[in-house]
Computed example of a mutant assay.
Amino acid sequence: MPMSKIPLLGLQAAQFRHPIDLEATQTLQQLPGLDWLVRSLLGSVAEQVFYLENIGSSVLVSERQLPELHQLLTEACHILDLEQPQLYVRQNPTPNAYTLAMRGQQPFIVVHTSLLELLDPPEMQAVLAHELGHLKCEHGVYLTIANLLVLAAGQLSPFGSLIAQNLQRQLMAWVRCAEFTCDRAGLLVTQNAKVMASVLMKLAGGSSSLASQLNVDAFIDQARAYDRIDHDLANLLKSVRTAELTHPLPVLRAREIDRWSDSPMYQSLLQTYAADTDHPLAWKDW
Rank of each mutant, 00 (worst) to 15 (best):
E117N: 14
Q91F: 04
D21M: 04
P158A: 07
H231Q: 12
V38T: 12
M3T: 15
L156W: 08
R90T: 13
P2T: 08
M102D: 01
P121M: 06
G206R: 02
A164M: 12
R103T: 10
L151I: 08
L82Q: 15
L156H: 09
H231Y: 15
I220M: 14
V175N: 02
L116R: 11
L115Q: 03
E256L: 08
R39I: 10
G104A: 13
T99Q: 09
L203G: 02
L162D: 11
G56M: 04
L249R: 12
L37F: 12
P158V: 11
S268C: 05
P95D: 00
L252P: 00
Q213S: 15
F50D: 11
G206K: 02
L187Q: 00
S261P: 00
Q155T: 06
F16C: 00
S4W: 11
P32V: 09
E63H: 12
I6A: 01
S207N: 03
Y98I: 03
T99M: 08
P158E: 03
A153N: 09
I6C: 03
S207C: 06
L236H: 08
R228D: 09
Q15C: 02
E244Q: 13
V240P: 01
A225D: 05
Q170S: 15
G43Y: 09
A204N: 13
N192W: 03
R169K: 12
F50I: 10
A152R: 09
T272N: 06
L149R: 11
D276G: 04
P2L: 07
Y88S: 05
K238L: 14
I163C: 06
S58I: 07
A211M: 04
Q65W: 07
F16L: 06
L171N: 09
A173Y: 12
A14W: 12
M124D: 08
E256D: 14
S212E: 11
Y142K: 02
I20D: 15
L22D: 13
G33F: 10
R224N: 11
P7C: 04
L149N: 05
W260Q: 01
Q155E: 13
L149P: 06
A76C: 06
V45E: 14
E68R: 03
S58N: 13
A211H: 09
T94R: 08
L237D: 09
K136W: 03
P85W: 00
Q26A: 11
H18C: 04
Q267G: 00
A204C: 02
Y142W: 15
F159E: 14
I145C: 14
I6T: 09
W283V: 08
P7N: 09
H78R: 11
N235R: 15
A13G: 13
L132D: 01
L8Y: 02
